[in-house]
């Protein structure tokens, strides 16, 4: 019960780091067309470390809130750290029970961030 905790709704209504970056080092998008979710994450990377994050797109409260929470964490992380970011951390941040049907929503932001990190390393 109470999937929609205050903190999740708060991030959903006032997402952190929301918007596109002007000159991102790398951008990645992921979508979940069957649900109607799509997310873009822009990263600015300096010396292998993330200095700025912007995320945009549409999605449910769970995918938007988890991406918003994640976006705060990403700042200061190295690309390798992002690639190894455990799913459990996301569940912990959300702080509510995620049913199997909502796992994809909860992890959409993380999957996108990992994709950005990998793309960024390939690009180099």
């Amino acid at each position: 019960m109470d999937l929609y905790s205050e903190i999740i709704l708060d991030h959903y209504k006032n997402p952190h780091n929301y918007g596109k970056l002007d000159n991102p080092t790398i951008s990645a998008t992921e979508d979940n067309p069957l649900c109607g979710d799509d997310i873009q994450i822009d990263l600015k990377v300096e010396n292998d470390k993330v200095t700025e994050v912007g995320f945009s797109g549409e999605g449910c409260a769970i995918s938007q809130a988890s991406t918003s929470m994640l976006s705060d964490k990403l700042i200061g992380m190295t690309l390798d750290e992002i690639k190894n970011f455990p799913n459990e951390e996301i569940y912990k941040m959300l702080g509510v029970q995620i049913s199997p049907g909502r796992v994809k929503c909860a992890l959409l932001g993380l999957v996108t961030a990992k994709k950005a990190a990998i793309l960024s390393q390939i690009k180099k």
Partner: peptide, 25 residues
């Protein structure tokens, strides 16, 4: 409110509805 969230809350009320694009993208 995203349709997914609507369906989740309906589900908590034990009302089963569908959300998504219904295979008609």
């Amino acid at each position: 409110v995203h349709p997914h969230d609507i369906a989740s809350i309906f589900n908590e009320e034990n009302v089963a509805i569908r959300s998504g694009q219904h295979c008609a993208e």
